[in-house]
Write a protein that binds this DNA or RNA. Structure first.
Lengths: 301, 301
DNA sequence: ATTAGGGATAGACATCGTCTATCGCCACAT
DNA sequence: ATGTGGCGATAGACGATGTCTATCCCTAAT
């Protein structure tokens, strides 16, 4: 049985006339007659009662028509829904974001994304890098915003912006009077995040593996970390986008001597079909953050 | 788009594996892959994300699946309903019956019909011969029980039984003492039905066009006619199956001298597809009425 | 009786679905 | 590093089938 045949059947039943039904279907009368005949043979029932001059649907045909209409309607729905979804810049898009980025980046880019890609329903998903990569590979995410390079050939990444690290100090800290802070000095009482945060590894890498006092104090979130620094437990290193939050917490921010930072990327599966959506999202975020690195570094003085 | 392709799509989405999906569909893996690919091109969207080692339905595919399942389910419903209706001895059957037959025949044949053809839902439709023929030709009836021969080559008829006419007399009537009544005598004060009843024409034909007293009294129904005879307004001629009702009304019944009667037929369109149902109904009625003519004639003495 | 309309039939042609065989890719194991 | 196996894609051949035009047959109406 074929959807085409069902359309022929509908036309024949509605027109009550094979010739006109065929015309409505854009085929010749013999074609429609033959297909209807085949359908009757396949179903094992007579669908039309033919007499020399006229034709009428049988009782059985009338009983089938409801299902036939429903099947054809569902087929049309498939075509319509597919047409709506043909635009890769539409529909749900699950975007992973690391926790040290999400709270500070999302407020900046949400409105521009909605404006530039109104049909795209972006669902943010916050998790650490390893979790995001796993979900990305499991196709539970469509893309992810990471601060590390993709770790395999099955994933692709596009840099969006560079985010400088800043030294975050309690106002009374001895380094707070410097205009620029050297990483080695910051390392003396550096507090870091808990395991799994890429920022933890990056902070330790930038400052050398000091982490004296803070060794035991592994904050679960950047927000916690900031409060701990504000309370005088030590210093830390924050990503530039968190500058506002750090200042709100009463911290003093200083550029680093080496201008170290991290490169934020959007990462996706190489085979992902909606690369256009990835491109568009990346473009909006990169555009919003363009020139951010310099501004952030300058604005902290 | 094709129902077959939709079944392939369903299998692929549910198995998450082209090879196993193809096996489930009873086709080879390349065939399924090619059809899925074509479907993707027709819909203009990617349905599956392929990677060297695995495959997964896209977001768009998942959104379509509901409609796909619905369409396939409707198609299956069409097949199932058709299978149920493949039996011509099942389903609704609209059977026309003339008014001088219906009230007396139906009680006799209803139970045998239900027993012999349990799946056939017989819908009786009572009307005069002309109305039944019109509805039959308009395909609003599937067959009709008539007491006349079909009036055209587009209709076929099969005789079911012969129904003798009986003279129906008030007990005090002068003819009531006879064992057999001659039609000419009956004609003297014969009451007949209203125009349109075939029995009216037949009674007049049998008795000659007398109809003296009854000329103005054209009863709309046989039941009315019986009551009028019982009230002494005249005599009448009734079909054998109405004997019981006539006796209940207190009438005396006598066979006619010429053993005149009418032949009851089942009539249907020559092109009607469910001839088997007509045959079966006719057989049940004929079987139930077999030997009725003799019995009725004998039983009235 | 003739004519026109409507459906059925026949035969040719092209499309398309399906198969087998093979390739290419990727992951995993030795 | 290298082989191996699983899985999907591709190629080419073959057969089924949907479609067309031309024609026939039947019926009803003039």
């Amino acid at each position: 049985m074929n959807l085409r045949d069902l359309r022929y059947l509908l036309a024949a039943a509605e027109h009550g006339h094979f010739g006109r039904a065929a015309e409505a279907c854009g085929i010749s009368q013999p074609t429609l007659s033959v297909q209807i005949r085949k359908l009757e043979e396949e179903l094992g029932i007579a669908l039309f009662e033919r007499s020399g001059r006229s034709m009428a649907p049988t009782e059985a045909c009338l009983r089938l028509l409801g299902h036939v209409r429903a099947a054809v309607a569902e087929a049309d729905a498939i075509l319509a829904v597919a047409r709506d979804m043909r635009d890769p810049l539409a529909g749900r898009f699950r975007l992973g974001i690391i926790p040290t980025l999400a709270p500070y980046l999302l407020p900046l880019v949400f409105a521009p994304l909605r404006e530039a890609l109104p049909a795209l329903e972006i669902e943010p998903w916050e998790d650490q890098t390893a979790g995001l990569l796993a979900r990305l590979r499991a196709r539970e995410l469509d893309a992810a915003l990471l601060a590390t390079e993709p770790d395999g050939a099955d994933l692709l990444g596009r840099p969006l912006f560079d985010e400088p690290f800043l030294a975050a100090l309690p106002p009374e800290h001895r380094l707070a009077s410097r205009r620029i802070v050297a990483e080695e000095e910051l390392a003396e009482d550096l507090l870091v995040l808990a395991d799994g945060h890429c920022l933890r590894d990056q902070a330790l890498a930038v400052c050398g593996h000091g982490g004296g006092a803070g060794g035991a104090l592994r904050a679960a979130s950047l927000s916690t970390l900031l409060n701990m620094v504000a309370a005088g437990y030590g210093t830390t290193l924050i990503p530039g986008l968190a500058a506002g939050a750090a200042q709100d917490a009463g911290l003093v921010l200083r550029p680093l001597a080496t201008r170290a930072g991290r490169r934020v990327r959007i990462v996706w599966r190489a085979r992902f079909p909606r690369q256009a959506a990835v491109e568009a999202i990346g473009e909006v975020i990169a555009g919003r953050l363009r020139g951010f690195a310099e501004g952030a570094a300058a604005g902290t003085i």
